[in-house]
Design a protein around this nucleic acid. Structure first.
Lengths: 339, 339
DNA sequence: CTGTTAGCGCATTCAA
DNA sequence: TTGAATGCGCTAACAG
């Protein structure tokens, strides 16, 4: 062993002994249980004893007894994308506020279905937030049948899964288009990820619709991923397919970064000859060359809302679809200009 | 309630009933406990029954009984920096391989000491990995006294805390300097974060030492943070303090990005008039303008090693200092050039 | 090779 | 207002 070993943690019985009462009373008082209406004097004694002993309820015992783990699971494809980081941050913060722990799983390598099953079925978490585009709809529907009251989709909607939280993706794309239209652009490119991702479908829809509304011509390009490389590819494709547009909307922030790189490589000055707007903002935007104009969407709030929804499910609430109401906000920087 | 309610999960007793044996035997067989040397026939029956019932051991019960939670805690300042993301990824992956869950806590807002205490004291995790520079040495030393066999520092060393895992920071800085020296640079700038971070101390030391060895003049600048903004600041300061060097080493990847931005703003072409190298690599490097030369350090492996160390502590091993042996590797791109 | 017994620490009946 | 008894699901020590 690593020396003297750690001192045993104080239990309810220890506190009870010190306060001269029965353990069960300690439990009730410390949890503010209505049935623990102890005299204020005893209560004080118990509280003091608990503090002196540094007592903390053992979560395992508590979970075993009450079948509440006080922990939430969060499934991510990884920590690569800034949006996932923001979601994770929002989830963590709100979970903490509500006194819940956070168990994180990624499925960069392993079988996602397996990861999920393990987390929920082994009783490690009370509910699961799934913020991954990589799990197939089918798998999700199958899963929700087994754990109906404990699955929340984050930044995603799937037919057959009732609990989900999303952002105003469509509006965000529209804001981007409107900004470019106001700058006088008449042909606007849009580079989007695969249509298997519902966020992409919504952004694309908002893009096309607003183009129509503004009387500008949309030039849609679909690429395979949604990272830097995908953006780079998309930009090249846009340039190589006939007359290129004078402005472009990137479906994600990393894509916009890749596009900036591609335009530079092709000698197309941004924003002089090509304007670029990205959906989703990031701290990096101010340090790119040129500084990137973005449409901000409250990604962290998305995480917070997901936690609230999940906990309402745990409390027996009905599953529902939530759209975080915050309007997407344009953050004009230096990558967009008048035609 | 949300409808019919979820079906009760199968317990050991359920499996035992179905297989016609005693629960404890099921437990032993399913865990491959040496004392569970059941006849291969019974074993088969038990395994089948478990599979049919979709049995999963309840972690809370298991943890309560064996005082092993099979979960590791990871404390991060947030998910902002790419290094933290990489560490988290490495930790998650290795923990998963070793059949451990991961409880993540950040302390962006709350009191770090409180977060730690809660995680460990409430018995949610068997050991804690601390990968945060924001917790003071003093707090860490105090903490390790309370939980000596369950604290591992990641990417950090503190006097008085015996278990830690770090990278070859000093060598990484040296590699960067050598590269620049070989390109003919005779005065090299180095922009580092605060000396309260031991990673910064090591990188700085390696920088200065290698400069001396290579016979080039080091120009050290210390800034307050280690993000984009700090790099931006550092670059400006470097330019405004007399004759600027012809090349510069950034202590972190985000800092390098900020520096690129600052040089551009000042009209100093990279790499023609200024070469830039960053310590730590990132997927973004290939999409910056110009593409950024970096020194790669195995950040994910850092996380994996930390898990291994933590689990060895849990098993009663002695705490020790680990340096991930992988040599830092130069990844030459377009931000460095001959003088 | 397999069954019995006991108890981890807590929340929750039911009594008093 | 407080105490006593019970068991959540599992593992471990001991019997057989």
């Amino acid at each position: 062993m690593g020396g003297a070993g750690r001192q045993r943690r104080a239990t309810l019985a220890d506190v009870a002994g010190r306060a001269g009462v029965h353990p069960s009373l300690v439990s009730r008082v410390l949890r503010n249980d209505p049935s623990g209406f102890a005299s204020s004097e005893t209560r004080e004694r118990i509280r003091t004893a608990a503090k002196e002993l540094g007592y903390r309820a053992n979560e395992a015992a508590r979970g075993l007894r009450s079948s509440r783990t006080m922990a939430l699971g969060l499934l991510l494809p990884g920590f690569s994308s800034p949006v996932y980081s923001a979601i994770a941050h929002g989830v963590e913060e709100r979970a903490d506020q509500r006194d819940y722990g956070l168990v994180i799983g990624t499925h960069a390598a392993g079988d996602p279905h397996e990861v999920i099953t393990e987390m929920v079925m082994r009783g490690r978490v009370d509910a699961l937030l799934v913020a991954s585009g990589r799990i197939e709809d089918q798998a999700l529907r199958q899963l929700v049948r087994r754990i109906p009251e404990s699955l929340v989709l984050v930044n995603r909607q799937v037919r057959g899964v009732a609990a989900s939280v999303v952002l105003r993706d469509s509006d965000a794309a529209a804001v981007a288009v409107r900004h470019l239209a106001e700058l006088g652009h008449r042909r606007i490119g849009g580079v989007f990820g695969p249509r298997t991702l519902d966020t992409m479908v919504r952004r694309r829809h908002g893009f096309v619709e607003e183009c129509t509304k503004a009387g500008v011509e949309p030039v849609v390009t679909e690429v395979d991923g949604r990272d830097h490389g995908a953006g780079f590819q998309g930009a090249l494709r846009l340039l190589d397919a006939g007359e290129p547009p004078s402005a472009v909307v990137a479906a994600t922030f990393p894509m916009a970064v890749g596009m900036l790189s591609a335009f530079h490589e092709r000698g197309l000055a941004v924003p002089d000859r090509m304007s670029v707007v990205s959906i989703h903002d990031d701290g990096l935007a101010d340090y790119l060359v040129p500084r990137l104009t973005t449409v901000m969407l409250p990604a962290a709030k998305l995480g917070a809302e997901a936690v609230d929804l999940a906990l309402s499910l745990v409390d027996g609430g009905a599953p529902r679809r939530v759209v975080v109401p915050d309007a997407p906000r344009l953050i004009p920087r230096s990558s967009t200009a008048r035609v």
